[in-house]
Write a protein that binds this DNA or RNA. Sequence first.
DNA 1: ACCTGAACACCGTTCAAGT
DNA 2: ACCTGAACACCGTTCAAGT
Lengths: 244, 244
Amino acid sequence: MATRARRSHRRTEALSRERIVEAAVELLDAAGEGGLTFRALTDRLATGPGAIYWHVANKGELLDAATDAVVAAALAVEPAALPDSPRDEIRAVALGLFEATEEHPWLGAQLAAQLSRNPAGTVTPRIFESLGRRVRALGVPRGDRFTATSALMHYILGAAGQNAANTTGAAALGPDADRAEFLDAVSTAWEELDADDYPFTRAVADELREHDDREQFLAGIDLILAGITALHPPDAQARTSPAT
Amino acid sequence: MATRARRSHRRTEALSRERIVEAAVELLDAAGEGGLTFRALTDRLATGPGAIYWHVANKGELLDAATDAVVAAALAVEPAALPDSPRDEIRAVALGLFEATEEHPWLGAQLAAQLSRNPAGTVTPRIFESLGRRVRALGVPRGDRFTATSALMHYILGAAGQNAANTTGAAALGPDADRAEFLDAVSTAWEELDADDYPFTRAVADELREHDDREQFLAGIDLILAGITALHPPDAQARTSPAT
DNA sequence: ACCTGAACACCGTTCAAGT
DNA sequence: ACCTGAACACCGTTCAAGT
C-alpha cells in the first residue's frame, strides 16, 4: 500500500555511525525488531551492506547502540527543571524510562537482551548512576545504597518490559486497537482461567481493566521508596555531608 | 571436538509437542538462543522440519512453550515442604525463579521477549498467581494487592534478566571463567568510567565485586516487602478471613 | 493423522574491487 | 579511509508427496 518513496535524496550527508544508529531506531520504531535488517537499512541509507559494516561491527552492536541512544535520550531530560526533592527526582527519572518504552516498544525486550549480550555495556551504568545519585541524596547510608539502587533499577527494567508488552499486544490486535482494548482482552482471558488453579488472578482481573499504567508503575516506585526508608533510615551523617 | 554421537537411537518414542519442547530447552541450555534452530532440532529428534511444524505453529510458539515449561517447573517446587510464613514463601518463590534463570541463562531475555510476543500468554498468570496468593495471605488489603503483586513480579523479572546477563557474561569470558571473574571485570570497567559523569557508580564499583547475587536479590525482595507493609499495613479483617 | 525432505525466500556477513 | 555490490552460508517456513 505505502508508496516506496524512500531514497528521495541521493544521500547528501556522508555515512556515519550516528546516522546509521538513527536509521536503526527509526526502523525499530516502525516495525519492531523484525523491521531492522541490513536490507532495510541499506535501502533507507542508499548504500551497501559493506558501508554499514565499516562503521559497525555487527547487528548486535547496532542493537546495543540503538538501545543506548534511546536510554541516553530518556535520561538526558533530567537537566531541565526538575522538582528538587530526591524522591520526586527518582520518580521523574523512572517515569522518563517508562515513557521511553512506550515510545519505543522494542526497548523493553531489548534492554534485557542487551544486558545478556553485552553486560558490561553502557546502558546499565547510565541508569544506575542516575538513580544512585538520588538514592544517596535521599540520605541512604553508604552500605545500603547499592542494594537500594539495584532494587529500583530492576523494578524499572521489569516494569518497562511488561509495559512494552502491553503496547505490542495492543498493536497486534489491529492498527486501530488501543491499549484499553488490549487490557480488556487480557482481563477477560484472566477471568476465564481455571477457577481452582488461578483464584487470585481471577479475582483481581478486573483491576487490570481499569488500571492506569503510569499510576500503577509509580505506585511500585513508591512501594520501593517506602521500603528503602523503612529498612535503611536516613543516616544523619550522610545527610549533613551528602557528598560522602 | 565433541564427537557427533547424537541420534544414537532411531527414535523409539513418537514425536510429540512435549518431546519437541524438551529438546528445545536442551538446545537453549547448551548454546543459548542462537543454538535453537530447526536444523539442530531435526537433527536431535531425527526427523524433518515438517514433522515439527505439525506439532508447533512456528519458532515463536516454540520459544514461548520452552519458557513456560521452565517457569512452570520452577514454580512447581512449591508443594514440597516450604516455610509457611507468607513472607518466607514469597522469598522462596522468588528465589526459585531466580535460580531458574541461573540454570537457564536464556530465560531472562526470553521472559521479556515472550511478554512482548505473547502478552496474554501463560507465563505472567503463573507467576502472578503464585505471588498474589501469598500477598493476600500477608494481609494486604484487597485494593492494594494488585499493586503489591505487580511490584514483586516486575522486580523479579528485572533482576532475573540482570542475573542472566552475569551468567552469560561469565561464559563469554571463556569456558573456565566463573562468575566472580566476570563481576571483577565489570567492577574494574565501572571504576574506569569518567569521574565527572559517573561518581556514584565508581564509588560503589567495589561492592559489585564482593556481592553475592542471591543475597543481593533477596535484599531487594525484602525491600519491597518492607514497602508493602509500610504502605499497605495488614487489614485486620483480611487476616481473620484470609479467603476474602 | 502424522511424517518426509526438497525447495523457497530471506537474512547476516564477507571480501575483492573500486575511489 | 571509505564505499560498492555480488556472493556465501545459514535460517524459518512451505508443501507436494508419502504412510
